[in-house]
């Protein structure tokens, strides 16, 4: 049985059978993660310049002018797109930081779960705020 599994080297035969049984090892999601990190980064470049212009123009302006500005469809859509892009990019980036520096398996899983919950909640709260002002 051991010899048969070692022959199937391309199906995980190089792994210790106990490791395979515990579900440890590659999850085969890394390429997707890598591509999505780059795609969100490319989308983030123009959005960064838009957001900087938005912030310099409005972060210290009056409540009336800020809400009037964000009520315009173009600005509301770009702000919503920025929120989704930046929270998503931050989430998958922070995931790599946690995976690289957290060496305790249980602590890593807890931190990754907490990260996703916090980033998802932050994105939803921000989107809600934009919609409430814009609609």
């Amino acid at each position: 049985m051991q010899k048969a599994s070692l022959l199937k080297w391309n199906k995980g035969g190089f792994k210790n059978p106990l490791t395979r049984a515990r579900g440890l090892g590659a999850g085969h999601g890394a390429v997707h993660h890598w591509v999505m990190q780059r795609l969100s980064a490319i989308l983030a470049v123009p959005l960064t310049f838009w957001l900087c212009a938005a912030i310099t123009g409005h972060v210290y302006s009056s409540y009336a002018s800020f809400t009037a500005w964000l009520s315009q469809p173009c600005n509301a859509i770009l702000m919503a797109l920025s929120i989704i892009t930046f929270f998503y990019h931050a989430c998958i980036g922070m995931q790599v930081v946690i995976e690289d520096y957290c060496h305790n398996e249980l602590g890593k899983v807890i931190k990754l779960a907490a990260l996703r919950i916090v980033m998802f909640a932050g994105a939803i709260a921000s989107l809600f705020a934009v919609l409430k002002i814009a609609i």
Binding site: M79, I83, G122, A125, S126, F128, A129, K132
Partner: peptide, 10 residues
């Protein structure tokens, strides 16, 4: 901080 800005506006 961006979220706080938007939520304050809302």
């Amino acid at each position: 901080f961006l979220m706080a800005w938007l939520l304050a506006g809302a």
